[in-house]
Simulated assay, not measured.
Amino acid sequence: MNGPGRDPQVLDITANAGVVQARQLVRTLAQECRLSLVEQTKLITAASELARNTLIYGGGGTMIAALVQDHGRRGVRLTFTDRGPGIADVELAMTDGWTSGSGMGLGLSGSKRLVDDFVLDTVPGQGTTVVITKWGR
C-alpha cells in the first residue's frame, strides 16, 4: 500500500519551522503525485492547519508523509500525531465553524472537507492522531 519508490518521511513539528517544513514537504509530494494545483492547495491547506494544531494544542508532535497507491490510484497520506491532552469533545471539535480562537479558523471540520479520507483518533490525556489522504484524479 505504501508509496511508489520512497519510504515515508517523518518530520518533527516542535516549532513554527516544523509547520513551514510540513507545508514544503506536502507540496513536493503533491507535485510528485501529480495532483492538480487546486488539489495541491487543498492538501497543503489541510496539512498546514493540522500541523499548527499539532504544535499549538498537542504541544508538538510528528507528521509522517507518504505517497500511497490503492487500486491504481496514487495519493498522499499524512499522519499527524501528538502526545498532548487529546480532544475532550470530538463532536464539538468537528462542528463547522467551531474554533478555539487561534489558527486559520478552518478547524478539523474544514480540514476534513479539503481531503478525501480523514480519520481522527484521540484519547483524552494521551494525545491525538489525524490521518488524511488526498487521491489523484
Rank of each mutant, 00 (worst) to 15 (best):
N16Y: 13
L114S: 09
L11Q: 08
E49P: 15
G60P: 05
R83W: 01
G5F: 03
L37E: 04
G110W: 03
P4E: 12
L108S: 09
G101A: 03
L25C: 01
N53E: 12
T81M: 00
W98C: 03
S102I: 09
E39P: 04
L35E: 05
L25V: 00
K42S: 07
S48N: 11
S109Y: 07
P124V: 08
I44D: 00
M63D: 02
V119Y: 10
K134H: 12
E91N: 12
T28A: 11
E91M: 01
V10T: 12
D89E: 13
S36L: 06
L55G: 09
M63G: 00
N2F: 15
S109H: 10
I87Q: 08
T128F: 10
N53G: 09
M104P: 00
G136V: 02
T81A: 06
R77V: 08
R6C: 08
G136D: 03
G84L: 07
P124Q: 05
P8S: 10
P8V: 09
S36D: 10
G72Y: 02
L25W: 05
V38D: 03
V115L: 14
L35R: 04
G136N: 11
M1V: 09
A88E: 13
S109G: 00
P124L: 03
S102F: 10
G3Q: 00
R27W: 02
V123W: 09
R23F: 03
D96H: 12
V76H: 11
R74K: 05
Q126D: 02
L11K: 07
T14D: 06
G60C: 11
Q31Y: 11
G5Y: 08
S36P: 13
P8L: 04
Q69C: 08
D116K: 14
P85T: 09
V119S: 12
A88Y: 07
V130C: 09
G3C: 03
T95Q: 14
I44M: 13
L92C: 14
L43R: 08
L43W: 06
